[in-house]
Design a protein around this nucleic acid. Structure first.
Lengths: 181, 181
DNA sequence: TGACCTCCATACGGTTGCGTATGGTCCGAC
DNA sequence: GTCGGACCATACGCAACCGTATGGAGGTCA
């Protein structure tokens, strides 16, 4: 296993975070995951905190990429349905989100979580407004929909729900959209 | 600081979990919190895992105690309102819940989270049925209400919501209860 | 008083992770 | 080809934590 970039380190760190939590975002374990040693790490980064920040930045960038792809869907109803389907169908992102919320005592973690969440809520709100819903109603429905999303993801993580396809429909209905796919 | 019981250890461990996360549920830091040393710990417990389990058991017992107090409220509408007010007004319990959900890869953690959550959902469902709501509707509304609860708690933890009094009303309305307090 | 039991302090070895220092390898520039 | 820089391995000291071993303080009960 040859050379690795700072990007590779960030990606591996994000993987470790998703799979095993913040404690696993440690220099030596991630190095082993990449097949290199600490020597590589401290060339690319100053310390462990920078690695965590890089992983969070990568997560944010991934999220932005998904949003960018979403905006290519011009029909707002179809866009919202795609959004919800992707959100409910991605346990990895949900796992990361819960680790961040759990570790939100760290201001750096909280800030990234806040920024990404705000961005996602805004995408939903804007899409609902495109559908002709008044701003205040859109805002409340987005919060409700986000609540259902987080709640369902929580129940799935602790093994109380197997399938969540049903709840995509719930969320869709919650937002005043009962359009066909 | 004199002698401490296994209960004291479990309580201090639960405090550490709520405040600083699972990594803080370590023998020596909790010992310092209690003003004793490891010698005390390894008299009461076999290892660190047992301490974690004791903390989770204590959390479950606390939860059961709250539920027991709740059942003393005979009027189901008032009981539900009290329940929601207590739930939304307790950031400590929310913090513990998110740490557990985030660490749900550990089967022991997931099992406790599952049991406590199931118990709480059941209390809500049963209360709604007492209010005359058909079982299937009650079940769906409990899931929606739980979703709003978890979602709001998540937003509060990352600092996106200051007050949540508004959402008690939202959750109440979500469940088909628009009764006065 | 003395034997005994409960509970805890202290000291120890082992592991894991952080961060630094230093030397080695590969590769392009010239 | 050799020189220099990019990149990595290795070795080290340090700190935190786990679990064990052992002895000591304090109370109890005969």
């Amino acid at each position: 296993m040859g050379r690795v970039s700072a990007q590779d380190w960030a990606r591996a760190a994000l993987d470790a975070l998703a799979e095993d939590g913040f404690a696993a975002v440690a220099v030596e374990p991630v190095a082993a995951r990449l097949g290199v040693t600490k020597g590589s790490f401290y060339w690319h980064f100053a310390n462990r905190q920078k690695l965590i920040e890089a992983a969070l930045a990568l997560w944010e960038a991934d999220s932005e990429q998904i949003i960018a792809n979403l905006w290519e869907i011009t029909d707002p109803a179809r866009r919202m349905r795609t959004l919800l389907g992707a959100a409910f169908g991605d346990p990895r992102d949900a796992a990361i989100a819960f680790r961040l919320i759990g570790a939100a005592d760290d201001p750096a973690v909280a800030e990234v979580a806040r920024r990404v969440t705000a961005r996602r809520l805004d995408v939903m709100r804007q899409t609902l407004e495109e559908l002709g819903q008044p701003p205040d109603l859109a805002r409340r429905r987005v919060l409700a929909g986000y609540g259902v999303y987080v709640g369902v993801a929580a129940l799935r993580r602790i093994g109380m729900l197997d399938d969540s396809a049903e709840f995509v429909e719930t969320a869709v209905a919650e937002m005043g959209l009962d359009l066909p796919p």
